[in-house]
Nucleic acid binder design. Sequence first.
DNA 1: GCATAGTGGTTGCAAACTGCAACCACTATA
DNA 2: TATAGTGGTTGCAGTTTGCAACCACTATGC
Lengths: 162, 162
Amino acid sequence: MEPRSGCPINAAVEVLGDRWSLIVLRDIIFGDRRYFRALLTGSIEGIASNILADRLKRLLDAGILTRGTAARGQRARFSLTEAGIQTLPVIYALGNWGLDWTSGSPELRIRQQIMRDGGPAFVERLMDELRVRHLDAPPKPHDGPSAFEQLAADHGPPGVIT
Amino acid sequence: MEPRSGCPINAAVEVLGDRWSLIVLRDIIFGDRRYFRALLTGSIEGIASNILADRLKRLLDAGILTRGTAARGQRARFSLTEAGIQTLPVIYALGNWGLDWTSGSPELRIRQQIMRDGGPAFVERLMDELRVRHLDAPPKPHDGPSAFEQLAADHGPPGVIT
DNA sequence: GCATAGTGGTTGCAAACTGCAACCACTATA
DNA sequence: TATAGTGGTTGCAGTTTGCAACCACTATGC
């Protein structure tokens, strides 16, 4: 697909600018949903299987995800690439905007509030932990509980944030 | 329209997650295009008039833009609200991602590079200047040239960035 | 007055996309 | 051998998108 222009904002919009791609990434990042079925049934917005398949394909093509080699019928695990991990600041910025300018259920707003309270350093730390999860990077020595544990502390099982 | 969920990320995606809304905001913010015709003819991506009309309506409904009172056939000026000004961090994050993970024409990448070099403080300053332009806020005393002048310095007429 | 250019749009229409439901081939487990 | 689970595909109706042409109105110059 030809890009509509050479503008970097447009390029990002062409990849991420639709109603599902960032939702899928959100569930992969915060919900640690790595398999098709987990993404399908775990989505609170209720994504359809064909749409999910299409978006996963697009995110693979865009270099945001990779897929473990697995034949049809076998569990195939999806992982973030570095490009995928670096979508987190976009999701963070969107979440902050949503927090300020829309209403919503309080329990679904906690995560964003914690992230914002943690500031840019917290986002960096989340990205480091994603590199451990998805890129098999060696863990960096950090003080205190992991960033994802902090997010999950009060409102869900460890490592899985709604 | 019922939101699909109470998640702030989803809320932001429902408003901004399409292929044109953020492009329109980009042109308003960086190109200072305040009128329908300016947005229509100034868009390098080539937006159609009915799409532009629809997106302006949606952005008005979402409280991101306001419209000067003007009858049909009269020039109506569109202005950003505070909610609109605060989409800048989203656009900034998207542009940074595009800068790192896509290719594009060098001249269209300069703006994003300058913004990134300026860091978060530069973004804050841009938002302050948008408040002067769009909300009639009194200018804050800042040192040196305005942030928009810095963006436009080398590659376009003052105040209008491609 | 009268033409012309400019204003913010609207209307038709074909193509593309979205979303729901059902279904599929295959694998793992008991 | 039966059952549950894997990652999807297929049809199909409804919606959205995008292009082109057109519209009512206003402002301007002569």
